[in-house]
Design a binder for these strands. Structure first.
Ligand SMILES: NC(=O)c1ccc[n+]([C@@H]2O[C@H](COP(=O)([O-])OP(=O)(O)OC[C@H]3O[C@@H](n4cnc5c(N)ncnc54)[C@H](O)[C@@H]3O)[C@@H](O)[C@H]2O)c1
Ligand SMILES: NC(=O)c1ccc[n+]([C@@H]2O[C@H](COP(=O)([O-])OP(=O)(O)OC[C@H]3O[C@@H](n4cnc5c(N)ncnc54)[C@H](O)[C@@H]3O)[C@@H](O)[C@H]2O)c1
Lengths: 264, 264
DNA sequence: CCATCTTTGTGCACGCGTTCACAAAGACAT
DNA sequence: ATGTCTTTGTGAACGCGTGCACAAAGATGG
């Protein structure tokens, strides 16, 4: 899995990594909790009363030991010899993630992507409520999208304040993203989900996560190329002492990393 | 399931320093290369000839030492005392990522999101070409989206074969995702970018990356809750060792989740 | 050619995350 | 109560990623 993280890269690395809190849940665990929650919700809808770490891990696509360790950070909610109570775990994880409360969200930039997000039903299902849709283009403001009127960015500050919005979603063109971000932060937003392919600069205390389709595709392309190169080369994991001097001008075969066996 | 079951992990294979020049680029580095590439492209467009690791790192939002180490996996492309040649680095990273070749992509599920992706200009800009748009709904097939006709999934196998598609993008409802995935893989696709909130099961040799808006929001909500209610600790006697002053939040983990690597 | 200055490339240490492996805990049967 | 069986919770080891700090490399100037 790479990868991750999110990717994400703090736009402001200057502020050291202070994350290691005494009792805080590890970031890697937090990132998996939604995954567990989704699997648990599915079980809940099928009225499954309990689930073992092995079963749940399979459903979530992770290692069972990892899952148990993740849950151990939340507390001891399991019963040895039985497993975990589905409903109870759903509640605990929801509470831990803060999903038991309402999170108003604004989406800025109602173009192709903003449109799709506004129409996405998955928002409300987890306590996220679209408080407003914002755009700077007068030709767009006023339109009704997904039952909501697109309002002008002039109203951003007022909306963020009145609706107590703390999460903003940026779906503007990259050139406008930093500016929109600054304005959101100034208005009081402290968490930003950025879809624009730009590195956002934010002050301490503001979280930024990014979703970048282009990066994802490029990562896939890298591995795809490596797979193709492996096919051309031998399947032997060991590589004949690649000569350092070789300038490799012509597509050198990418062999597998050392960490993965190669027997195909 | 990740099925990284080849846990034979040779702790220390015979060859000691195979990795350095033998080219096994760490996943974390691969995930950052697109970021560097974007920053370099911007510099290139401004006709900047060279850039130091410090400047480029700032533009990419990463630590300069990390950037230098990342580049060291690609080779020694810098000049001490000067920096890196922008054009040369653009080429090297592009080549490493496989962007010097054409990557035909199919998008399956032309609803809200598929529509937005089809209209997204960022595809072609990096060598990714939308080879076809596919949908199972007869009411949708035949429509022209972004200049391309939406074709029926019946044609999937033919298209994947004829166009040599190795990357598939899934934007169907979650219930159909696994089925679509299986079919894509059977047709010959070996890399999948999944937007549906589902854990995809794939055989070894197939890479899956996921983009999950809901998970991103939930991670933000978690941190938001912590920022807002650090003092509102519940019954489980937490020990707020650190005062709220240095909240500084933790950066989310790398987004590299959902990446399942399998030896082929 | 030598001195100085800038910046790369990397050895090293450290912390986080993952995984193994197993003792402890509890369910269940007798 | 006792024993057996299942599954959790976690100690410990290990590998990866990160960032510091510095020597080496090369540019630049005299
Ligand atoms: N469409 C996709 O599938 C897709 C995929 C990946 C990334 N992205 C990124 O998402 C962003 C949006 O993509 P899109 O296809 O929806 O673009 P789009 O051009 O269709 O929409 C952008 C919208 O932002 C609005 N906007 C521009 N400047 C603004 C400002 N300062 N304040 C508020 N609104 C402003 C525009 O009026 C427009 O409505 C882009 O950065 C794009 O790179 C899009
Ligand atoms: N819209 C968003 O912003 C958004 C955000 C995050 C995640 N998602 C996820 O992305 C996926 C698509 O979202 P959407 O809003 O576009 O949904 P949508 O319902 O608008 O579109 C889904 C499309 O998939 C097609 N489809 C259904 N079954 C299919 C099959 N077996 N083969 C081929 N095509 C099939 C449907 O005909 C439809 O056109 C969903 O899984 C959703 O959860 C969407």
């Amino acid at each position: 899995m790479a990868t991750g993280r999110s990717t994400q890269h703090n736009p402001n690395p200057a502020g050291g990594t202070r994350r290691s809190r005494g009792r805080g849940i590890p970031d890697a665990t937090v990132a998996r909790l939604p995954l567990y929650l989704r699997a648990l919700t599915a079980l809940s809808e099928r009225s499954v009363p309990t689930v073992s770490s092995e079963e749940l891990a399979a459903a979530a696509g992770v290692n069972s030991a990892k899952l148990r360790k993740d849950f151990s950070y939340l507390g001891s909610y399991g019963t040895r010899g039985v497993g975990y109570d589905v409903e109870y775990l759903v509640y605990q994880i929801s509470r831990e993630l803060g999903l038991t409360q309402d999170w108003p969200v604004v989406i800025v930039g109602i173009g192709n992507l903003g449109h799709a997000l506004a129409n996405y039903g998955g928002f409300a299902s987890r306590g996220f409520r679209v408080a407003a849709l914002l755009d700077a283009d007068p030709a767009i403001t006023g339109n009704v999208v997904a039952g909501l009127p697109v309002r002008h960015t002039d109203e951003m500050e007022e909306i963020v304040r009145d609706e107590r919005v703390s999460i903003g979603v940026i779906t503007t063109p990259p050139g406008a993203a930093q500016q929109v971000c600054d304005r959101l932060v100034a208005a009081g937003v402290t968490s930003i989900l950025n879809f624009a392919p730009t590195v956002l600069n934010v002050p301490d205390g503001v979280d930024v996560r990014k979703v970048d389709l282009s990066i994802e595709l490029q990562i896939l392309a890298f591995h795809e190329q490596r797979k193709a190169g492996d096919d051309l080369a031998d399947e032997d994991g060991e590589v004949p002492s690649a000569p350092a001097a070789a300038v490799v001008s012509g597509r050198g075969p990418e062999q597998g990393h050392g960490y993965e066996e190669a027997a195909g």
